[in-house]
Design a protein around this nucleic acid. Sequence first.
DNA 1: CGTGGATTTGAGAGAAATCAAATCATGTGG
DNA 2: CCACATGATTTGATTTCTCTCAAATCCACG
Lengths: 246, 246
Amino acid sequence: MNVMAHNHASALIRRLSLSAGLSPDGAEAVRRLPFNVRHIAARTHVVRDGERVSQCCMIIEGYAFRSKTMSNGRRQILSIHIAGDLPDLQSLHLQVMDHDLVALTDCTIGFVSHNAVRALNRQRPDIGEILWRESLVDAALFREALVNLGQRPALSRLAHLLLELRRRIEVVGLLEAGRFPLPLTQEDLADTLGLSGVHVNRIIRQLREQGLVEIHRHSVQILDLKRLEELADFDPAYLHLDPVTA
Amino acid sequence: MNVMAHNHASALIRRLSLSAGLSPDGAEAVRRLPFNVRHIAARTHVVRDGERVSQCCMIIEGYAFRSKTMSNGRRQILSIHIAGDLPDLQSLHLQVMDHDLVALTDCTIGFVSHNAVRALNRQRPDIGEILWRESLVDAALFREALVNLGQRPALSRLAHLLLELRRRIEVVGLLEAGRFPLPLTQEDLADTLGLSGVHVNRIIRQLREQGLVEIHRHSVQILDLKRLEELADFDPAYLHLDPVTA
DNA sequence: CGTGGATTTGAGAGAAATCAAATCATGTGG
DNA sequence: CCACATGATTTGATTTCTCTCAAATCCACG
């Protein structure tokens, strides 16, 4: 319940500074937001579809995902989130959730009231624009995910997902010797990629057999980045991480 | 090249007033934005993937779509846009396009410089928030499209697309006796739904045979709304059109 | 009235799903 | 520390959905 979170926002600030030109004093203002820090157990809901919320959150540590579940029980995972993400920033202006937000692992999460964020936006329109931009990048990832689901065969689809995660994890400094955690079960991956669990298993095996990727105990090592990027038709422009490319 | 466009924005204003609580004087401020009105021929690009832009646009009349084309030529249509939409609002803060915007029919489009929109946002933060919200609704549609591509079989997938279009068209007052134009070829529909053209043809036939929908000469009539909504598992909450539901 | 794009239909192939069972981990309590 | 229970992964067999290729028909437009 720590209200001061001076370094909790470091991953977020690192990313925003790199990609959105957040200034040092802007970073300070973000750091000073009144985050209410809480621990969330793996596989518990942070917010539920249909709920009306008055705060949004920042992931400080751990993994989370957003998903929608249809009335027949089928679930689509919409996005995977890591430290430094603001996975429900959209609730700032869309206060009724249209999907779930769930902790994938045990998480440390900082909650901020919408009021505090709105106040900051009014006081510092430059930061408001950066947060708006952040929500637009979120949408850009959804667009690429649409291409992934609609146009790529299963093998490339998984490859693309891994490459996106690798890059995003790298940006916040959590890539360790080219290796990163992937705390999704194969069933979770299936629901992310619009495939069946069985098929995901077979696809993973193919990636392994082709010497492209090593996936073991929820940890991923990409062995041949170039070849994997070709297979996935991966172009990171949509991540909008490069300030030159906006 | 008319700079005054007092009623050109009526569809947009109608929608924002209904769903985002745009006030009458806010509407007036939006109307007074310096729109540069131009006509765009069917099947021409409005903006291209990779371009850096300094203006965004509002559809005054006609249909457009956003799409991404992969290096192997496969294309995914990301969204379909109608009068009153701001299909490249994201460029306001993401100035390099990560997809194409293409006119589907002959269109009348109003272009506004980013500078003018940014100035309005600073001067009228309430309108800035409504535009931000608008970009968040855009993202909400992408999320639902992800569910559509990832989890629904072809028949429900098409049904869902038709229901979404019907509702959006209704909101801006363009639904005529339950009928609306659908100027997409079956090939276009295929690229929207992640299916092949041939399969889309067969799916349309099924919808017709089941007495659910009549599609003829690029015009759609939904014959059994209730049954179609069941088939599609359609819940319009994600459109965020109802201000009570935010 | 001809032409080219769009739609429709048929046949066969392929990708991925489902169903079912076996194996492998992980963590718990005795 | 081992036995067991639970969930995750792996493998096999079969079915289903959707794709591709190919050809025929239809339609809008000049």
